[in-house]
Amino acid sequence: MLRAMIEVTDLVKEYESARAVDGLSFSVEPGQVLGLVGPNGAGKTTTMRCICGVLQPSEGTIRVAGVDLSVDAVSAKRNMSFIPDDPQLFDYLTIAEHLKFYGRVYGVADAETHAAELLRELELTGKEDQLPGTLSRGMKQKVAIACGLLHRPKAVLFDEPLTGLDPVAIRRIKQTIKRLAAAGSAVIISSHLLGLVEEIATHLMLMQNGKKVLHGSLAEVKESIPDLKDGGLEAIFLRATGYEEEPA
């Protein structure tokens, strides 16, 4: 068995009035793509933000590439990348400058050539000198993805990665994610697009009220509800979360 690239153990995240994540444990191995799904307020984004070090867990441990985030956050983050759903780029840095900055932070020796490859792959070639303000939302999302993948991360966290993208870009991003996994990265995708999760995820975790409701490989998840095993993820999602409509 491969050593887990992302390891979450008994994660609890409490806010003053609520418990957003409640004793969550799971791991993602190299090459796996974990689809993180659940209704709004299930705790998906909180979990992602805890893993990427933006939120401090109230309890539990998180390890990325074997490094405990609470002990050495900088080393853990060096192996990881978080791509948010709302790309927040620096107003006055061009795309090329964004990549230069990221390359320097992660210490990527071949940043220039790899950046050019990523820009080509994401169809951003020719836009290197543009400022984010002149780009569409989809373009900004692509820039955020390029920045996040520049250092060839071992663990990648995508929060709603396809928001605002056109069909061509969606296809490219899907290919990119599959390629990342094939190259040995552990990927977590949080999304409401169950079709996307079904298409590219190898594993699935369904969350509700901060807890894990279903978890396993796609096949295992489907097997867990025998009468729906031939149906899509949508039917399983509705059944597991209790939103399934009564038969007419």
């Binding site: 990427c52 070090g53 933006v54 956050a73 900088v74 080393s75 853990a76 983050k77 060096r78 990881m80 990348s81 978080f82 948010p84 709302d86 927040q88 780029l89 620096f90 107003d91 990221y102 932070v105 992660y106 920045c147």
Partner: peptide, 14 residues
């Protein structure tokens, strides 16, 4: 700022 918080906090910076 929002872009700073969104980008810098996930980077390997002290």
């Amino acid at each position: 700022t929002r872009p700073e918080a969104a980008q810098l906090f996930v980077l390997p910076l002290t």
